[in-house]
Computed example of a mutant assay.
Amino acid sequence: MMKVALSMCKQTVSLLNVPSGVLKSNFFSPRQQKEKVVILMGATGTGKSRLSIDLATRFPAEIINSDKIQVHAGLDIATNKITEEEQCGIPHHLLGIIDPNADFSATNFIDLASHAVASILSRGQLPIIAGGSNSYIEALVDDKDFRFRSKYQCCFLWVDVAMPVLHQYVSERVDKMVENGMVNEVRNFFDSNANYARGIRKAIGVPELDRYFRAEPFLDKQHRAKLLREAIQEIKRNTCKLACRQLGKIHRLRNKKNWKIHRLDATEVFCRRGENADEAWEELVAGPSTEIVAEFLYNISSEALLAKPASRVSCGIML
C-alpha cells in the first residue's frame, strides 16, 4: 500500500515579507464587505484532511468537517475519521458530534456549519471547510436566499487524483482499514434489525458486511473467509463508485455552475513512495495551495511569498 507520511504539524508560516500584524489587520479589516472562507473539495482518499491541516498550520485557522458520515460519532476506522493525533491541535468542528442513529440532513449541515463559520471568524480565525460531501457544500454556499454568498467570499481548492491511480489507492486503503480492525469495529455495531438508510449505518463498509455477520455463526472457517473477501471487495467497489460520483459533482459545480475552483493535481504524489511523495505533496499541493490562500486572504501576489520551510514537528501519521 502506498503510504504518504503526514508531517502535518509542519510549522511553516512567516509566509510574507511584510511587517508583523499587517496580515491579520488586512484579513480582518472592518472595511472589507465580506469575510473569507476556504473550502477544500475532492474525492475520497485524495488528501483533503492532510491539506486542511497543512493550511491550518500556516494560517490562523480552524477546520469544519463537511463529510456527512464523519459528522456522526462512532465507527472511526470505517468512516476514516482523522484522529486526535492527526489533528495536531487544530480545532475541528462537526466531527463525530451527532448520534450514530440520527439522521443528518443538508439543512442540519447548513445550520451547524454557518454557526461554526461565524464562531471561528469571531475569534479572528480562518474557517476551512473540508470534506467529500459536495452536495452539502453546494447547499451551504448556494443556499436559496444567497445568505452565505452575501456574507462570505469563498476560495475553493480541489485536490484531484487521476481515477485509475486513486482507485488503486482506495483499494489499498480498505485493506489497511481491515488490518486496523474495521471488521471487528463494525461487528460490534451490527444490529440485525438496523436500517442502513439511516445515520452512520449508511457509511460504506457497514451494509456490505451485513451478509457476512448474519452467516458467520453458521459457516466453517473456509466459507467465512470467502464471504469476508467478497464483502471487502464490495467495499472497495463501492468506495471507487463514490469517488467517481464525487468527482462528477465537482465537475458540475465547476463547469455548469461556474464555481471558480482551483485544481491541484496530486496524481504524482500517489505514484511515488516515502520521502519523494512528501516532496511531491509540498511541490504540487501544499505549496501552491498556500500561495492561493495567501493571495486570497491578503491580496499579495505569489512573488511576495517566502519559500522558507521551517522545522517540522512530525505527528507520526501515515495516510
Rank of each mutant, 00 (worst) to 15 (best):
A294P: 06
G205K: 04
D278V: 09
G274K: 14
A286E: 02
R245T: 08
E275G: 08
R224Y: 04
E234T: 14
D210V: 10
K226E: 10
W259M: 12
Q222V: 13
D210I: 03
I204R: 14
R273F: 12
R272F: 03
G287R: 06
R245L: 11
H251N: 11
I204L: 14
A277G: 10
L228M: 15
S289N: 06
Q246I: 03
L247Y: 03
N258W: 00
G205T: 02
K257V: 04
R254S: 12
R245M: 08
L264S: 15
C271Q: 14
W281K: 06
R211G: 10
T239Y: 02
T267E: 03
G248L: 01
T239C: 14
R254M: 08
A277I: 01
A225D: 11
P207T: 03
Q233K: 08
Y212Q: 14
W281V: 05
E279Q: 13
N255P: 02
K256F: 01
N258F: 07
L209V: 11
D265Y: 02
W259K: 13
N255I: 00
K226L: 12
L242N: 10
N255S: 10
R214H: 09
C271D: 05
E230N: 15
T290D: 01
D210L: 07
E291M: 08
T290I: 03
A286K: 04
E291D: 11
A277N: 02
K260G: 09
A243V: 05
H251Y: 02
S289Q: 03
R211F: 07
R214D: 06
P288R: 06
E234V: 09
N258C: 13
D220P: 08
V206L: 10
H251L: 09
L284T: 04
F213W: 03
L209P: 11
A225H: 05
L284H: 07
P217S: 11
P217V: 04
R252H: 13
L247C: 08
L247R: 08
L227W: 00
K257Y: 04
I292N: 08
R263D: 04
S289G: 12
V293A: 11
C244N: 04
R272A: 15
E279L: 12
A215S: 11
V206C: 11
L227M: 15
E283G: 09
K249E: 09
R252I: 01
C271P: 04
N255G: 07
